[in-house]
Every structure is written in structure tokens, then in C-alpha cells.
Computed example of a mutant assay.
Amino acid sequence: MAIALSTLVQEADAFLTASRISDYCPNGLQVEGRPQVSRIVSGVTASQALIDAAIEAEADVLLVHHGYFWKGENPCVTGMKQRRLKALLANDISLLAYHLPLDVHPEVGNNVQLARQLGIVVEGPLEPDNPRTVGLVGSLEEPMSAIDFARHVQQVLGREPLLVEGEGLIRRVGWCTGGGQGYIDQAIAAGVDLYLTGEASEQTFHSARENGVSFIAAGHHATERYGVQALGDYLARRFALEHLFIDCPNPV
């Protein structure tokens, strides 16, 4: 079955309430390809490797979390950007990208989907009084040590995480996928035993160690693989389309 590209974009925009969320990049249709869609390829980042894989898979739409045209980047279409855009346009493939709307969505969002993968029971937002907060707080069904939880994360995500071990067992967890290390202080204020995100900064170690809280950096890419898969599956079910998630390995 094929549907109009405009119909797919309208549904994705509305489902994610993309227009209501201020972001660092445009959300939605970033590159327009053929007008009809029957096959979606999804992935985390619109890298050249993912574009090449989408071409090989004969995709009509490439759906990603990390697209293009970020605030502050050089707007000139040269070098890497030129090669990526040229490949999409030459093969008539649309690029559909959602950043923060895909992080915060209560059904297909990266943070909710990561919680489901790790068996964390979601309690609510990291900062209930801050509508811009993308992180969440939740609990484990059974308390475990920080080392055991890190092993669990490694088993689920297929990547050895960076662990800063704190004090006591892990019962309450705060998390924000991707580059959310800056939220560690809010997580500490929320009373978590462990904070998990994708990346770490130098000062993250000190915040965790001096507050007795465990910290895990499990990889930006690794923690953000699940939202775009869930969104692609939703759109495929909604319109009876084909959907293929392609994971291009990234150690960061």
C-alpha cells in the first residue's frame, strides 16, 4: 500500500505534537522526495552510512532522530552535507526527522522506550514543574547493586557502559537519553539512587561521587535507538506500510 508523503508527515507531526516544542533544529520533513510512500527506513542519525543503507533498501522515506540544519551550524551545502543531501535528492528519498518531540513523547519517546527496555517503572518527569524537562524518574521492581544494574544495561543495550558507583542499592532511577548528562543535578535533587544517560562530561563524575549517587553513561546512540523504531512501527501500522529499522553502529 502507498500513501501520500504529505499524509505521512501530517500524521507524524500531529502524533508527536511537533509544532508545540521549541527545538534546536526543524522537526518534520527536512528533505522532500517522491510524493508517494510505501516503505520507511528508520535509524538514529542521518549519516552517510544510513543513507546508503536506505538507498539499498529502496526506501521512500528515511525517518531519523538526528537530522540536519541544527542551530549554529554552517548553512553552506558543501562537503559532507552536500554529499548527504545529493544522495537523498538523487534517489528521491524524503528525510523525516524528529529531535526533542521524539525524546519526550509518552508512548514512542526515547525515554519511555528505554525504560521499557530496561524494566524501569516510570513515575513521572525529572522536574515536574519544568515543562521543558525531557528526563524521567522511575523505580526498579527489585533493588539491585549499581554493578548489577550496569551489567543489566550492558546486556540490554549490547554496549559496556561507563559506571561511577555510588552508595547503597539502586531503587530509584533518573534518566535522560542521549546527551543528558547536564540533568544529573536535577536527578540528585529528585532523590534518585542512580542517574543514567548517554554521555558524560568531566564534571559529571564529581557530581555523582560527591553526592553518593551512582551514574551510568550508556552511549548516546545506544540509548536513542528505540524511539525512532517505535515511531516507525506506529506509522507502518497506521498506514499499512513497510518499515525497516537499520542500526549503524556508533560507539559514542
Rank of each mutant, 00 (worst) to 15 (best):
L126C: 10
A150D: 04
E160R: 06
P143W: 08
A115T: 14
M144E: 11
G119K: 13
Q113M: 15
L118V: 09
L118D: 10
V192S: 04
L163F: 07
L196D: 07
V156C: 08
A115Y: 04
L194T: 14
A90W: 01
N91A: 09
A146K: 00
P143R: 00
L163G: 04
Q155D: 13
S145T: 15
L126H: 00
G179P: 01
A97S: 14
A115S: 12
A187N: 14
S94L: 10
G174T: 12
A90P: 07
V164R: 05
Y183S: 06
V164P: 07
N91Q: 14
L169F: 13
L100C: 11
E165Y: 09
L100M: 11
G191S: 03
D148W: 03
V122A: 06
L140D: 13
N130A: 03
G179N: 06
L194F: 10
D103M: 11
A150V: 07
F149H: 12
L169Y: 02
Y183G: 04
P101H: 01
R151K: 14
C176L: 15
V156I: 14
G168K: 02
A187Y: 00
G119I: 03
A87Q: 04
Q117N: 11
G119R: 10
D148R: 08
I147W: 13
D193T: 08
F149R: 10
L162D: 05
A150N: 08
E160Y: 12
E107M: 09
L96I: 12
L85E: 12
L162G: 03
A189H: 09
V173Y: 00
V122G: 01
D103L: 05
R132G: 05
L162F: 12
G182Y: 11
A190P: 07
P128G: 12
Q181L: 00
G179I: 06
M144L: 12
E165N: 05
L196G: 07
V173D: 01
G119D: 03
D103R: 09
L169T: 02
R132E: 15
G182N: 08
V164D: 05
L85H: 07
L163Y: 13
G138Y: 00
E141Q: 15
E123K: 15
R159E: 02
G178W: 01
A187L: 02
